[in-house]
Computed example of a mutant assay.
Amino acid sequence: MYLRKVGVGMKKTFHPAWNVLRRITGIAVSLICVVTLLPFLQAEGAGIQNATRLMQPFTLIKSTTELHSDTLAPDAVQQFAHEQAIILGTEQAGNQWDHAQLDFYPLGPGTRSWLVYANVGESPVGYMIISANDQGQLQLSEYGQGEQRPYNISLLYQALDRQQLDLEELIPDGGGLQLRYAPPLLAYWKVEMPNDDVIYIDATNGDTLPTGVLKALDTDSRQASKRMKSIRSISVQAVVMTPEDSPQVSSLSVDSLDLQPLFDPADNLLWITSKALSINGVKTLNQQWKEHKKIVFSADHQNVLYGGPLPVSGYQIWRDERGTVHNQYVAIGGNTSVRRFVPLQSLLRDGNFYAVKP
């Protein structure tokens, strides 16, 4: 099977018109039930070698009370993830974050990011994506609650089916699959074809991504990988993600989730013509909700890196032991994509909030 035959136009370079189309049409794929990820993605950037393993359950390292080898994640990453899970478990009694087993999945070479699934038995608790910055400091790039998770294998199959591709046939022919992550917020699959063509699929909504932009991101990640020492060099000191005068991670707790009704930004496009709202924190975000009810986040020309535009669907505040606001995570998506809690500062840096007018 050839990408040129089934993916006409995939080679075109991303340009503003593509972004406008995303803003107008919205996100078209509905998530279905969450199932287990592919069993064989157990090495950073590794391709799939054996299609017969597609249907097998897989076993990954567990990190609740005991840390394990750095085959899939360094010990410092596991320790950091464990601490974040404990913090998320302070929201309310019984949310089970602090009792969850944590499964780790490297997100491609050069990205310095790991997907973490949290489960109690067979029940999903949530997910995290942990990334290391250029200084080797770890940070919680995003997280989610409950069953909605990126890299849903059912979503991948739907996306490939629209391209008339069959993963079970693709892999034995020499193709490959990688889980990838590009800052600030692009979770995606890289599907490699036997004839060296590649397609990229958004792992939060199933959209096919523009090949030119993603190839450039791949090149950047490879160059970053060459510049940086092995990720295993990250030490336990990397667990500290705040300045010395900031509270330690163990002293943080989270407020209860504040969630808003979900909607599709494509249902009412008048927000495209409105002025950006003035928002600098969740306090002003709340004020805008009281006035406008529905708010959309758009990263404009960077929407490809966010899967946007997306509904703003909630927030969660992280506080220190004195009650001072330490982090503000805002939820985007949740209607036709995964609801993702991401740092508000990332959204303010890269995009704007718009009111949906009746």
Rank of each mutant, 00 (worst) to 15 (best):
A51L: 02
A51F: 00
N286K: 02
A76S: 14
T219L: 15
A238L: 06
I86E: 06
T64H: 14
F14Q: 14
H15R: 15
G175Q: 05
L88A: 09
N19R: 12
P247G: 02
A276Q: 13
P183T: 14
A299E: 05
G136C: 07
F58R: 02
L37M: 14
Q223I: 14
P39G: 13
Y200V: 04
A276L: 01
G206M: 08
L140P: 12
G110F: 11
N327Q: 13
L277K: 06
Q223P: 00
K290A: 01
Q56G: 01
I130Y: 04
K229W: 01
A299G: 12
D264Q: 11
I130Q: 08
I231H: 04
N50T: 09
N303K: 07
S63A: 15
A28G: 13
A187K: 01
S235N: 07
D161V: 04
S346M: 08
L138N: 05
F40S: 09
Y354T: 00
H326N: 09
P183R: 08
E192A: 10
T211A: 04
I295L: 04
Y151E: 00
L217P: 06
K226C: 10
K190T: 08
G110K: 09
P16I: 07
S225E: 07
K226W: 11
N152F: 01
L54R: 06
L115H: 13
A17Y: 09
D218M: 09
Q164D: 13
I317Y: 08
S256P: 02
K275G: 10
K5Y: 14
Q158Y: 08
L179K: 08
L54K: 05
P57Y: 01
L277Y: 02
S225L: 09
E44Y: 03
T25C: 12
L3V: 15
